[in-house]
C-alpha cells in the first residue's frame, strides 16, 4: 500500500502546505485534495497531514475512515459506480449490481486483480429518470440491463 509513497512525498508536501497549519477546519478539505491527487489516501500522507495540522494521527485516521468518500487503498484504472438509490432500487439496481460484481469477480469496494476496475456503489446521482444508472469514470449509463453489463464494461479496458 505504501510502496510508492516516496515519489509522492514531495507532492503531498506541496498540497499540505497550501493549507493553513494547525487549523482543524482544514482537515477534510486537505484529505479531499490529497485523494484528488492520488485517487486514495496513502498512509504517509495521513501522517504528514497530522503533523501539519498538529493533530494526533489517530484523529486523522478516525476522520478518514468515518466518511464514505475516502479510500485507503489505491483504485483501479476505471471506477464503476452502481447507483443504489431508491429510484434505481425500484428499477432493479440490486440485480444490476450483482451482475456487475459477478462479471468482474469482485464485491463493492474492491478492485479487480488486474487493476482495471474498482467497483463502488453510490446513493442517487440525480439521474433517477433514467434508472438504473451506472457511472463509469465520468460517463453516465442509464436504463442498464443486467444482461448488457459485459457489453458496457469491456470497451473501457482499452481506454
Amino acid at each position: 500500500m505504501t510502496t510508492h509513497v516516496c515519489e509522492c512525498a514531495s507532492a503531498v508536501e506541496r498540497i499540505v502546505r497550501a493549507f493553513p497549519s494547525g487549523r482543524r477546519e482544514a482537515l477534510i478539505p486537505l484529505l479531499q485534495a490529497v485523494q484528488e491527487e492520488f485517487g486514495y489516501l496513502p498512509q504517509d500522507a495521513l501522517r504528514a497531514i497530522a503533523r501539519h495540522l498538529n493533530l494526533p494521527a489517530a484523529k486523522v485516521f478516525g476522520v478518514a475512515t468515518f466518511y464514505n468518500q475516502f479510500r485507503l487503498k489505491p483504485v483501479g484504472a476505471h471506477t464503476i459506480r452502481v447507483c443504489r438509490g431508491t429510484a434505481c432500487h425500484v428499477r432493479g439496481s440490486k440485480q444490476l449490481l450483482d451482475a456487475v460484481a459477478d462479471h468482474l469477480g469482485v464485491t463493492p469496494g474492491e478492485t479487480t486483480a488486474d487493476g482495471e476496475f474498482t467497483l463502488e456503489t453510490v446513493a442517487c446521482i440525480g439521474a433517477c429518470s433514467i434508472a438504473p444508472v451506472v457511472m463509469v469514470d465520468g460517463d453516465f449509463h442509464g436504463a442498464v440491463k443486467s444482461n448488457a453489463v459485459a457489453k458496457l464494461l469491456e470497451p473501457y479496458r482499452e481506454k
Binding site: 482537515l27 468515518f66 464514505n68 446513493a123
Partner: peptide
C-alpha cells in the same frame, strides 16, 4: 463553500457542524 465527504448522518444539523469543524460527523 464546504464539500461533504459522503455521510448521510452529516445532514443532521449538529453532525453537519462537527463536519465543518473538521471532525467525524
Amino acid at each position: 463553500l464546504k464539500q461533504g465527504a459522503g455521510a448521510f448522518v452529516c445532514g443532521e444539523e449538529t453532525a453537519l457542524l462537527a463536519s465543518i469543524e473538521g471532525k467525524r460527523g
